[in-house]
Computed example of a mutant assay.
Amino acid sequence: MAGQTVVSIEGDRFFINGEVTYPGTAIEGRLMNSRMVQATFDDLNPETRSRWDRPGRPWDAQRNTDEFIAQLPTYHAHGLLAFTTNFQGGSPEGYSKEQPWHNSGFDADGTLRPDFAARMGQIIDAADELGMVVILGLFYFGQDERLNDEAAIIRACDQTTDWLIERGDRNVIIEVGNEVDLDRVYAPTHYQHPIIQVQRGDELIQRIHERSEGKLDTPEGRLLVSTSQCGGQVLAEEIAGVVDFVLLHGNGVESPSKIIEQVEASRQVPGYRGQPIVYNEDDHFDFDQEENNLAAAVEAGASWGYFDYRMKDEGDEEGYQSVPTDWSLSSERKRGFFEALKKLAQSTAG
């Protein structure tokens, strides 16, 4: 039955099917997650598609999705309650200066592509059966220019909203764009469409709110929506009053103490009204150490998200963001995260 898992928010805590997440543990009310944005990846550029081939194993988008879904029970058994995926993925190289590949779930006019939607629907359904939440991203810099204009961005936003409502998905929360303040933090321009950028970040959030209002059988009665910012940045005042949950990134935050400062500073931003704070991207590990970014986020009262990519000279077993992806717990880093999470999910609050 689609929509059997219902995510909701009360104050700064997450609930699934009316029960607070991780009850009685040190992470009660959190939404611990992992960045799995390539779960629907495909490359529509014939000039770059062969990059993702391996000997005897040409790239196959459906196989990639199937292999991801097959690992969901393992993730869930270790305490993972949520993961981020995105209709425009993320860099399959971890960090990229150029993005010649074409990985977009939207046609140039903003129409939702049936093949991408089918794979995303399979993922949402599989998560729903397990009681997991999908943090569904719409846009990614380097790929947003695949859409022609602002009208196409709006159409993509509307079609995704309508698609989720028609499906009756209640385990999905929305991340409109990934790191929408890139143009404020770095140069040159990354997002080509200003309506996605943080300066206008409230517009699409409010549009999804209004379009979904009263159309979902959830405590809020509509989709829960946010948009994420660059590593180390605090909540932007432009979106503080409209987001249902705050999405921060820990990339570039080398000291765990700075994670605590980032969370505390975000809570002081005008417009912040006590929403839960969620890291859904952080590429710092050290899970065997007493002090690390995961532990600091937990101390600060925030949820944390694991972001792992294949680093220089590493093999295919590394990195959940790199393509082709080994979705199993195939590396020391992956196992380190999931073992740390399992301990937290079984911990006692105090």
Rank of each mutant, 00 (worst) to 15 (best):
Q275S: 05
Q268W: 00
E261Y: 06
I277D: 00
G274T: 01
Q275F: 05
E281G: 06
Q268T: 05
G271L: 01
F287I: 07
P270D: 10
E291V: 10
I260S: 08
I277C: 04
R273P: 04
Q268K: 15
N280V: 07
E291D: 11
Q268Y: 05
P256I: 10
F285T: 13
E281W: 10
V253H: 08
V253I: 14
D283C: 13
N292V: 11
E290V: 13
A265F: 03
N292T: 12
I259Y: 07
R267V: 00
R267K: 12
E261R: 12
I277K: 01
A265E: 14
S255T: 08
G252T: 08
P276W: 01
I277Q: 02
Y279M: 03
E291M: 11
E261L: 10
Y279P: 03
E264A: 13
V253M: 04
D286C: 05
V253W: 04
Q268E: 14
G274Y: 03
E261Q: 15
S257W: 10
D282P: 00
R267Y: 04
P270Y: 05
V253N: 02
V278M: 14
R267S: 01
F285L: 09
N292K: 11
S255C: 07
F287Y: 15
D283M: 08
Y279G: 02
N292G: 08
E281I: 10
H284M: 11
N292E: 03
D286L: 12
G252E: 09
V253T: 11
P270W: 01
S257M: 11
N280W: 09
G271I: 00
S257K: 13
V278T: 07
F285V: 12
D283W: 04
Y272P: 03
S257Q: 15
Q262V: 09
D288V: 10
V278D: 02
F287T: 09
D283F: 09
S266G: 04
Q262E: 12
E290Q: 14
A265H: 04
D286H: 15
A265G: 06
Q275T: 04
Q262N: 15
E264Q: 14
P256W: 07
G274R: 04
Y272M: 00
K258V: 10
P270F: 03
V278P: 01
Q289T: 12
S257H: 08
V253F: 11
E261D: 15
V278C: 08
Y279H: 15
E254D: 12
V253P: 01
E290Y: 07
D283Q: 12
Q275H: 07
D286N: 13
Q268R: 14
E290D: 14
E254P: 01
Q268I: 06
E254I: 11
Y272H: 06
H284P: 09
H284L: 06
R273G: 12
K258P: 03
Q275D: 00
S266N: 04
E281H: 03
Y272V: 00
P256Y: 07
S255P: 06
H284F: 14
Q268P: 05
P256A: 08
D286Y: 11
E264S: 09
F285E: 12
G252H: 10
K258Q: 13
E264V: 00
F287W: 08
S255G: 05
V263R: 08
R273S: 07
Y279E: 00
I260L: 05
N280A: 14
Y279C: 05
R267G: 05
Y272G: 01
E254V: 13
V269T: 06
V269S: 03
Q289M: 09
G252A: 06
V263Y: 00
E264N: 13
F285Y: 15
E291F: 08
K258Y: 10
D288I: 05
